[in-house]
């Protein structure tokens, strides 16, 4: 299976993961600072900033776009409970 590297820059830790893994599945295990509320793409608590590899995450759904807008996301912010890792990227809590 294709592998990808995700780096959590707030704690400077990198994890090798199978492509398709959701960020939430990694960040909690490694103890990164991204936090979660509803865990289903509704509340915006898990907003993260993608520093590199924006295109290496799955596209946001219409619903995710809406939640990001409502929570005044800036450019290159995503929901960590929704985004799946397709290739190398670097993220931190928004």
């Amino acid at each position: 299976m294709a592998k990808a590297k995700i780096t959590f820059t707030d704690i400077d830790q990198t994890v090798n993961v199978p492509a398709g893994t959701r960020v939430i599945e990694v960040s909690e295990k490694i103890g990164a600072g991204i936090i979660y509320g509803c865990r289903e793409g509704d509340c915006g608590t898990c907003m993260m900033h993608v520093e590199e590899g924006w295109n290496n995450l799955t596209e946001p759904s219409v619903l995710e776009e809406k939640v990001l807008r409502e929570n005044m996301a800036s450019r290159h912010d995503r929901l960590a409970c929704q985004a799946q890792i397709l290739g190398d990227c670097r993220v931190k809590p928004a």
């Binding site: 090798n16 295990k29 490694i30």
Partner: peptide
């Protein structure tokens, strides 16, 4: 080490995380 950031800069396999 996690508190002081002394563990920074490591790479881990997802499967090795508890």
């Amino acid at each position: 080490a996690a508190m002081t950031g002394a563990d920074a800069g490591q790479t881990t396999e997802l499967a090795d995380l508890a």
